[in-house]
Amino acid sequence: MSAPVWARRRAAAVQAWREFRTNTGGLLGAAFIALLVVFSLLAPLLIDQDGLNVVTATGSPLEPPSGAYWLGTDESGRSVLLLTLWGARVSLLVGFAATLLSVVVGTLVGVVSAHFGGWISAVLMRITDFFLVLPALVLAAVLMAVLPKSMWTVIMAIGVTSWPTTARLVRAQTLSVESRPYIERSKALGGGHTHIIGKHVLPSVLPLVFANTTLVVGGSIIAESTLAFLGMSGPEISWGSMLDRANQSGAVTAGAWWYLLPPGVAIVLVVLSFTLVGRALETVLNPRLKGDR
């Protein structure tokens, strides 16, 4: 009997893709992200890493764009183009890893608190609300200030401060699923907690979590750059740390727009792509938004 089940799931996926395809913004965003991910994975093979080293860099400091350096150089004479391309690796990695952490924690808290209710829910929601209202950036920055500075701390700090939104969303969705009569029917059939969560709640909550995830990735990438700007980052090259160094080295007063623009534009493009994909997925996967919207 599992063959028809899989056939139906495949058909549903094909249908979802067909609907997604009609959303131009989402499609463009998805294409851009796919391209960037492939490039980031291959970057060590494509980029000569000597150009990233302060010692072996060949340019002079803050050179404007020229034939040799299409996007000029930074304060140590490194190519801004090269740095921006390389920076995608850390920015994407931080974005994805922090999102994974945040979504896993958020989904767990959301499902558990909605399904079990009672005091478990009260305690979990109290904690969620607490983290929800705290100024996330300030908390993340404080965490970074007291912990050793590394990329993994950045991931942890962003993950720890961004899960409550997911938890709220998942909880609301779980509550709405659990109020449906088919859950009551399943209980009357004798279904226990694992059965109800596994067969009914998760399958209908996860698609929305997936749509939300893409939005969280965008938020995490912005958070990474903001933390880096506040001086809270590891030693790796990321778009955020480039902007921080640009600011610290007086690129603004020197009018070195070529140093400021590329990493910022890269952030905006990536985050916008994730946002567009997320919104497109939401319309495809959330039946309530379907139809006349």
Partner: peptide, 21 residues
């Protein structure tokens, strides 16, 4: 609005600074 939402705030500030130098 979506473009502004996708922007790090400090970067927007820096851009405004450079643009209106």
């Amino acid at each position: 609005a979506l473009a502004l939402w996708s922007m790090p705030q400090f970067w927007l500030g820096l851009l405004l600074l450079i643009a209106t130098q």
